[in-house]
Design a protein around this nucleic acid. Structure first.
Lengths: 377, 377
DNA sequence: GCGGCGCATGAATCCAACG
DNA sequence: GCGTTGGATTCATGCGCCG
């Protein structure tokens, strides 16, 4: 379905905000620059871009056990020179700048192979960098030959259209998400795997699928419900799936038919959250801290439930007053018992303790998020 | 004391490695580009650089000729300003490239204001990026206005002189430092404060003094004792103080007299570590090599002994000359036969092949360790 | 059904010395 | 310079099999 058909789908489109010509909630097949050129100026609230990294990999790499490392060798990641990569980068970033609303922002993710070139281009094109964000990978691939530091992170750039531009930043939502501390510029997430990783016949569909948690935090931080999000390197549609879940409108541009097919199936299966769950936190006064005990009081976690850490090395039982009790005799708050059993000076109980749900371990912080989303007006 | 005096001080200087013309363990006063131009080519093992971060925050900016650039905020001049910063960056990076030994490396630290421009320049000048490292600040300054994410990190770039260049990386030291796990690309340190922070009349001497722990890890990872480290933006001399402590030679370039005075006092007070304390975990490859045949010669393993892998899927017989012979016809070194029987591109015979001892399988590498322990003084 | 073990795998710019 | 060879090198996670 091409951009020229100008079809509008979905529920939340508001004429005042969203030009009717936008092909919302669709994947546009083709080259990202050409497709962006067909979109109207100042029509998009946010752009998330995961462009080719230009990895410049050499020969084959083997693990110490002799197994072969499946590298990113796709044609779409190959560029002859830095100059070619720069020209491509500046071309799509310039189109992105034209399409963005004046109060819109752009996110770009990359690694040291490309992010410096991307960042310089972002600045040269007049964008104003608001933050660089580090995605710390909880489980990165090791450096098998012992020749460098483990490459354990990727970098994201967040920028507005210019120095004086206004932009959306849901400060309270981020602070709430971070246990009432300001959200920092370093975020930790696992790489995309398990049930979230799209596979076909047991083989990963896309070599670099991003975790939904990453997009969830970005969209929650920098967009409002109903906002239009464009992903010019859509891949298997993580941006679209999370946007649908969070009640945002989305557009994706992708060249590869296999990726498009996987993305469409995935997004069709995604469930939007309740309207009520989407309200973001507004002011500190209307947003008190959530005590762990409140979750117990409200039935999010039953007294007697056993909590464990991710490695099941320690456990503790939830008591009726919201305190924990461990078999070794430690009692107190989720934070205190967490630090005591570990012998650590401090511990964030919200992320340390996990409960069993649908056969998987989930941090109790997830329950707090559920609670907050459900109770905030 | 100027560079032209060509004084050599200190203990570890080796004529073969360190040209006598280097002004070692000194601060050179003046413009960093001019001072670097006076240093001989290929004479420095490592460069650590903490350049001015940027112009838009009102920091100092100098053109390649050393003249001062007035801060400007006009939109039209922003490009002009970036261009000047880029020219300055490329000028000092080019000199640094000339001064570095072919197996030397460079470190540059920066924030999102400048690091993308620096990184692009590093790549354009032919350096080969080895890692980007994130310094996660344990105690960053909060974002007081609640308009962005807390800027809680800075970025370092580590690069060799070119794609094929060799370089020093003390892998074992880093792994040991990190509790026997590979050192990752994200490091956490507190910002410089407390007794480490240099103050004069209660006021901090330098606005961006770096923590010694950061330099400690960098020098430990990428230099050997006696190596020459240059810091072209010396400031209050963190690089010099740590280099002295770790038994490395250093050179600093700095323009401001106040910084120089503070740095000289600080470095004079720094205590070098003991030789014994400087010893770090060594990679096995820097231990004396032991040929497998030596073990046979010395009776650690008798000719005719059958070796097997851990799962007893393959076996091979030890021959008198230290080669192996497998039933399938493969002959040669322990590595070659190991790779041949597996059909693998490579194999570490020392860990692949096992012998039977007391009813258990032990790797032949254990015999090598025994031999080394028995024969090393 | 549960726990333990083995195996697969992830945006990776991944060797050095010698003849 | 290039081909050959010695030999050094991995962490977290999810899944499936087996006892």
């Amino acid at each position: 379905m091409g951009v020229m058909e100008k079809v509008v789908r979905g529920r939340r489109a508001t004429l005042a905000e969203t030009p009717a010509v936008l092909p919302l909630d669709q994947i546009l097949r083709g080259d990202c620059i050409a497709q962006m050129k067909a979109l109207p100026a100042k029509s998009v609230d946010m752009i998330f871009a995961d462009p080719p990294y230009n990895l410049q990999l050499g020969g084959e790499l083997f693990r110490p056990d002799g197994s072969h490392v499946d590298a990113v060798t796709d044609e779409w990641d190959k560029f002859d020179t830095f100059a070619h990569y720069d020209a491509f980068t500046r071309a799509w970033l310039a189109e992105a700048h034209r399409i963005l609303k004046d109060d819109g922002t752009i996110w770009v993710i990359g690694s040291y192979h490309n992010i410096f070139r991307v960042g310089a281009a972002v600045q040269d094109l007049g964008y104003w960098i608001l933050n660089d964000i580090v995605w710390r990978k909880a489980n990165p691939m090791p450096n098998f030959r012992g020749t460098r530091f483990t490459n354990a992170h990727e970098t994201l750039i967040w920028a507005s259209k210019g120095e004086k531009a206004k932009y959306t930043f849901n400060y309270r939502s981020m602070k709430t998400l971070n246990d009432e501390l300001q959200m920092r510029s370093d975020w930790e997430f696992p790489i995309c795997g398990g049930g979230e990783r799209l596979k076909k016949d047991g083989v990963k569909v896309h070599p670099t699928q991003k975790p939904e948690a990453l997009l969830y935090r970005i969209l929650l931080a920098c967009t409002k419900p109903g906002d239009v999000v464009l992903d010019p390197f859509f891949g298997t549609g993580t941006t679209g799936a999370v946007a649908k879940r969070l009640g945002r409108r989305w557009m994706g541009i992708e060249r590869e038919g296999d990726y498009i097919a996987a993305a469409e199936e995935r997004i069709a299966a995604a469930l939007p959250l309740d309207e009520s769950a989407l309200a973001t936190m507004q002011s500190p006064k209307s947003q008190p801290k959530v005590a762990f005990g409140v979750l117990v009081e409200n039935g999010y976690l039953a007294p007697g439930t056993m909590l464990v850490d991710t490695k099941r090395r320690w456990q503790a039982m939830v008591r009726a007053d919201g305190s924990l009790s461990s078999p070794c005799g430690a009692n107190g708050s989720i934070h205190k018992v967490g630090s005591t059993v570990q012998g650590a000076p401090a511990c964030n109980g919200w992320t340390f303790w996990h409960y069993e749900a649908e056969g998987a371990l989930k941090p109790i912080d997830a329950l707090r998020q559920t609670y907050l989303l459900a109770t905030q007006p």
